[in-house]
């Protein structure tokens, strides 16, 4: 019994590390002129990984369905930009042309997390 519990526990630790740290969610692609919509609901951004073309301005539309105050703002810390998100109202977010690389976006506390991947 003890061995089984230990093995299960270690397996669970491995699963936690793999799921939260090592594997990533599928990326959504922002293409063309139409802005990609990011839904803010239930403590997450959906999609939370967005591929955007490098060297071109980026347009995203955030739709906030989450009434928690944490969801009230989206912060692009590396770009020194932040946007207020009003409940149930689409907020257009315009970002400058990005160099290749990852640009995280978070709520003000850094709990809701997503990343823009410019490539």
């Amino acid at each position: 019994m003890t061995i089984l519990v230990n093995l299960l526990g270690l397996g669970l630790i491995g699963l936690i590390a793999w799921w939260f740290w090592l594997s990533e969610s599928k990326a959504a692609k922002a293409a063309g002129q139409a802005p990609l919509t990011v839904l803010v609901d239930g403590g997450v951004y959906a999609p939370d990984r967005i591929e955007v073309p490098a060297g071109q301005p980026v347009k995203l539309t955030f739709v906030r369905k989450d009434s928690s105050p944490c969801a009230a703002q989206v912060v692009f810390a590396d770009l020194d930009l932040s946007f207020d998100l009003v409940m149930d109202s689409p907020t257009e977010v315009q970002l400058p042309a990005l160099k290749r690389g990852g640009y995280p976006f978070t709520c003000q506390m850094g709990m809701y997390r997503g990343v823009l991947e410019a490539g």
């Binding site: 799921w19 990533e24 969610s25 239930g42 403590g43 997450v44 959906a46 809701y112």
Partner: peptide
């Protein structure tokens, strides 16, 4: 409800929060 919904949504997005 918000904790359980948040935790579930976080889980499928590979994200773990206070929820």
């Amino acid at each position: 409800r918000q904790f359980y919904v948040g935790a579930f949504k976080g889980l499928i997005h590979h994200s773990a929060t206070m929820d």
